[in-house]
Design a protein around this nucleic acid. Structure first.
Lengths: 176, 176
DNA sequence: CGATATTTATTGAATGTTCAACAGAACCGG
DNA sequence: CCGGTTCTGTTGAACATTCAATAAATATCG
């Protein structure tokens, strides 16, 4: 019997957790809807386009892309199929490792991203970034960097391959 | 032509946004998996159980429940069907407003919640709360309360009915 | 070298989510 | 009290996601 009285959350912690849950649930919905209506893209589409756009040669191995965009390889695989059908992206098999595949951004994909980016950044600002004070942004950046890191390490690549210590890319500033 | 150069995110803002996205994507997955494996509940199941458990008479009108748990009425409706089949919850039609329905927590649902709560709180701590400093928690609570409020107001009840100014319930401290 | 394990990516089935359309009850305004 | 509007909740179909199983190429190591 290693039963212990669990460490319940304090009133404040609970409030903070519930607010987090709210944002977690709602924010993606809003961004997704705007993106979908204005540009026919899902949030995941967008995220993938951004990551590819920042990659050298506009290409990334699937596993790495999955890690960078925080999703499982299975999900990415389905996603890629859809995006390939939409002409945003193509797969190319990899010479160096014949198990592997490149995800490559097409010109159409690039243009789609460039068109969508201003509206999307605007949405991210309206619904999130611009609601925060400078101090809050700093704290949030630090806090969430830690949490994200933790989550990437915490599972043995089941959920999503851990992203290497890459510096955040500099490219077109397209707010994922 | 009201075209404007968009206000791109600064380097720091972008880093903070991307970390947020990471947490947004990953955290629910982790909590969901643990909850599912240990107790056969989804995160949404759990959230609904908690909200009902805190409500007077363990019952809530569907619309209000949807608002409290940050989801659309449609989604909740499907969810309720599943949970009703699982015996966690029942629907009762509402005398005062004959359009309406009550969502009522069953005893089985309550017990299930009580059993799951310690493990879930533990997960929330391990993957989130305990990774934050006291200062970060405070800042996060304030910041996200604002953002959540904004999101609730921002859409005209399309996504989810806006939650009234209810004080965060006091009940069993079960960390949603 | 060869056997085993690991890594890469895909697949299909089960499950969950969204969106738009709907039906019925209550509200509101003249 | 009648007509339109809003609100309640449900439904089905399209779509997305998860999970476990698979196949194929490469690593590992005795």
């Amino acid at each position: 019997m290693t039963e212990q009285e669990p460490r319940w959350l304090s009133e404040d912690e609970q409030q903070m957790w519930r607010a987090s849950l709210g944002v977690l649930n709602l924010l993606p919905l809003f961004l997704e809807r705007e993106l979908q209506q204005l540009h026919g893209l899902s949030l995941h589409d967008y995220e993938i386009l951004v990551r590819l756009s920042e990659a050298p040669d506009r290409r990334l191995r699937l596993t790495e892309l999955a890690g960078l965009s925080n999703q499982s390889k299975s999900r990415l695989s389905h996603q890629m199929t859809r995006m390939e059908n939409a002409g945003l992206v193509v797969r190319e098999s990899c010479a160096a490792d014949r198990r592997g595949q490149w995800a490559v951004l097409t010109d159409a994909g690039w243009e789609r991203l460039v068109k969508a980016a201003p509206d999307h950044v605007d949405g991210v600002r309206r619904h999130y970034v611009d609601l925060l004070t400078e101090e809050q942004k700093v704290v949030l950046r630090e806090a969430f960097t830690v949490v994200m890191q933790h989550l990437h390490n915490a599972d043995g690549g089941q959920t999503c391959p851990s992203v290497a210590g890459k510096p955040t890319a500099k490219a077109a500033g397209q707010a994922v």
